[in-house]
Design a protein around this nucleic acid. Structure first.
Lengths: 224, 224
DNA sequence: TGAGATAAATGAACGTCATTCATTTATTGG
DNA sequence: CCAATAAATGAATGACGTTCATTTATCTCA
């Protein structure tokens, strides 16, 4: 082992001679600032320039601690993962635990949909918070009696649903307004109207609950 | 009605005097060129400049037919929607029809995940292909015996799952490699390994099939 | 007590985008 | 043939992410 194989997401930390300038920045500070910026200005407002400004620093300074904007997004993602509530898997019946986890997961990422395209494809290697969540969820599935080979596919299926539902949660209330094409889509238009007397009845929450119940029932049947 | 309320996605078409220059461009041509560009260079390669070049035209010329790059994406989306196979809803049993539709839908958008964030939030108003799909699916649900109020939420839930699964389908095979953190996630790591002797066993297809079955069973139970 | 060595921060660049706009070009109806 | 119309052009703009040579601050070691 010539080198301790520096992690991709990790930035240098040598031990030799002569110490550097007092560090104003670090990854935690950058992550926190990014989260605050996102909550105030949204993902459009998250630019390297704005991030630097909020830290009182020049944009180029960020690149001493982060290799790209994409790495900032990964840091934010890991932070969010640590906020997902998977505690139920060690205390509640499996069905309840899944429900609690899924609602928490969706709730958090509904406000961070731009991260989903990153997460869904991001290796969990060296993503400790994400791994911790998977470990807890896996344990919960084992305890509930799932055969080992069914667990990962079940989690993947649930996550797919949760991510999709997170997008949904941001849809405008009138997303299903068929407008002047209503006449050519009578059944659909009627079904939309049946949800309530007025338009503006996008059933994001109801749909999430229904689909989640279906998944829990269907996947739960895989237990031995 | 002073003006026929020009559709947002629609670009001018007046009737007065004097006809314009011979049109080299139109929305259909732009859509086709965009699709070809995407298939060749991916979504990173889809720039207004590249699109214009592939049409033998200056970038600014596109803006006579399209109000923004976002509108190009909407045109592409509509085109893709027309390729989703919902034919089973008029010929097959409900379960089979849903399965066929879901596989087709996922297959198409797995190669167009950057569109998902757009679609999931895009009003269907004046999206004829999308509406046609919803109408056919709704009819299928009615024919299968679903109460009207359950139909839209069921479709929304299925779509959420399909979109999430489309992201999944692009995940690298080693996405679940826990690397050097494997020791701290024994159950998860073991569950991953149980999928096959080697790593590289991301169960995207298996997971999709399992979750879809669960949804079909669970939602199917809502029929009267 | 300096003299490197080290890393952090700076500011000025670059290249890539989407988009705008004044202008020119082509077409056609009156 | 003129006036009107819309399409296409090319130059310009303003974000944005990122790079790089340089400067600044700090610590270790001689």
């Amino acid at each position: 082992m010539p080198e301790p194989t520096p992690t991709p997401g990790e930035t240098k930390a040598r031990r030799r001679a002569g110490r550097p300038m007092a560090a104003v920045l670090d990854q935690d500070g950058i992550t926190a600032a990014a989260l605050e910026l996102i909550s105030k200005k949204g993902y459009d407002g998250l630019t390297m320039a704005a991030l630097a400004r909020s830290l009182g620093v020049a944009p180029s300074a960020l690149y001493n601690h982060v290799s790209s904007k994409d790495e900032v997004l990964k840091l934010v993602e890991e932070d969010l993962m640590s906020k997902v509530d998977f505690g139920g898997f060690s205390t509640l019946p499996w069905e309840e635990a899944v429900r609690q986890w899924a609602y928490s997961y969706r709730g958090i990422f509904a406000r961070h949909t731009p991260l989903i395209s990153v997460i869904a494809v991001l290796p969990v290697t060296d993503a400790p918070q994400t791994l911790a969540m998977y470990e807890a969820v896996t344990e919960g599935f084992l305890r509930a009696g799932f055969p080992e080979q069914q667990i990962i596919p079940s989690i993947v299926a649930l996550e797919a649903y949760i991510f999709g539902a997170a997008f949904d949660a941001n849809a405008p209330a009138d997303i299903f307004d068929s407008g002047r094409l209503a006449d050519s889509t009578p059944h659909f238009t009627s079904a939309v109207r049946s949800l309530g007397p007025e338009r503006n009845n996008y059933p994001s929450d109801l749909a999430f609950s229904m689909g989640l119940d279906a998944l829990i029932t269907g996947l739960g049947a895989l237990r031995v």
